[in-house]
Computed example of a mutant assay.
Amino acid sequence: MKIVLFTHPSFLEHQSMPRYANMLLTGMRERGHEVIVWSPKARFYKLPLMKSLKKWLGYIDQYIVFPIEVKFKLLRNSDDALFVFADQALGPWVPLVNNKKHVVHCHDFLALKSALGNIPENPTSLTGKKYQNYIRNGFSKGKYFISISQKTQQDLHELHLGKIESSAVCYNGLNRTFNPLSPTEVRTMLGNKLNLSLSKGYIMHIGGNQYYKNRKGVIEIYESWRSISKKNFPLLMIGSEPTNELLELQKKSAVKNDIHFVTNLADEDVNIAYSGAKCLLFPSLDEGFGWPIIEAMASGCLVITTNRSPMNEVGGSAAFYIDKKPSDDIFFKKWKEDSAKMLEKVVSLNKIQRAVMIENSLKQSQKFTAEFSLNAIEVVYKEITQKL
């Protein structure tokens, strides 16, 4: 099978999308398929102009220059190729090949749903709304899709403006190695690296400052838990530099000395952090998939997450669940209290109970290996090429 893989341009410096595209590239090549990558090059983007213009220059490279290049490439390309879009955000290019064999990988529709006003917590600017509509009109010209979760598939079907011929769910697979490590050893290693006392363990969260990551909610749950528990495990907030709002929340907290923001943690240290944690506290409002859930489980770390899809799709029976943080202040206090009780339950498990849940977590993580994901994706690719 010949595959033409459309990917985001490298000059955008994305993180998760290049990893996913590389998994497709290497995985399909290892399975004996011919894969070539089509992606915009930085031409206008690299011009030495004001930084504020960079985004718009990048748009010229992506949506004016690149489509012209694709049209010329199609003149020389054989008709038997399968055109694969690594992300539905590449939608503006889909109409270039929608009359050929193609498939669009869908990750999450949070930006589009925000632009449509469906997520009041995350308002979108006028230009952002126009951009998301441009992407939507593009991917809606597609007919064949693969979603990373049932939730993403459901959103696709609600937001697609045309007719979908084929829609499959192929869950993500870990494209980095995560293994359970000795908690005692890794706590010492991480503690020395961060200059913190972590020998008894810690509560962990990992993620960026996107609204749906609910980092503020993590701190609110932690504070509520500390008010009812005799335990005093610190909280490690791993990820992006904290916002001013998060820093202010930490500053006003009665347990501020036990709330630590950890930035620029190397990839190899993330496995260490998971393995040493008492649990991962991951109360996301929404996700496309929820990578940290399965990364933590593969590292032997217990997970507390939101009882909503796709988090409960990924966590299955191996995770502990709390309600989604309410937008209504009337229910907020109860949410904090109930979530704190769940955190206390998890960190209070005895050795036998904890060992059983860790074993369940490791088994659950085996459902989300790169091999499992790529095998499922390859089946769909073959089905599409046989249909057309």
Rank of each mutant, 00 (worst) to 15 (best):
M1S: 05
K2Q: 15
F6P: 02
F6Q: 01
P9L: 10
Q15P: 11
Q15M: 13
Q15Y: 12
R19H: 05
Y20R: 00
M28G: 04
E30A: 14
R31M: 04
E34N: 13
E34R: 15
W38H: 07
S39L: 03
A42G: 12
R43H: 11
K46N: 06
L57S: 00
L57D: 01
Q62G: 08
I64P: 10
L74C: 00
N77P: 15
D79M: 15
F83S: 07
D87E: 10
A89L: 09
N98S: 10
H105P: 14
H107N: 07
P123F: 05
T124E: 04
T127L: 10
F139R: 09
S140P: 05
K141G: 11
I148F: 11
Q150G: 15
Q150W: 15
L156R: 09
H157P: 14
V169K: 09
N175V: 02
L181N: 02
P183I: 01
V186M: 03
M189Y: 09
G191F: 03
K193H: 01
L194Q: 05
N195A: 08
L196H: 13
Y202F: 00
Y202Q: 11
G208S: 08
N209W: 00
R215A: 12
G217N: 01
Y222R: 06
S224H: 08
W225F: 03
L235N: 02
I259V: 08
V262L: 09
L265R: 07
D269V: 09
N271I: 15
I272S: 08
I272Q: 11
L281T: 02
G288A: 06
F289C: 00
W291N: 08
W291S: 07
P292D: 03
I294S: 00
I294C: 02
A296Q: 01
T305N: 12
T305I: 02
N307A: 13
G316M: 04
Y321N: 04
I322Y: 03
I322R: 07
K325H: 04
P326C: 02
I330E: 10
I330R: 14
K334F: 15
E337Y: 10
D338I: 11
S339I: 00
A340F: 03
A340M: 04
E344Q: 01
L349F: 10
I358E: 05
L362D: 10
Q364T: 09
F368P: 01
A376W: 13
Q386E: 12
L388E: 15
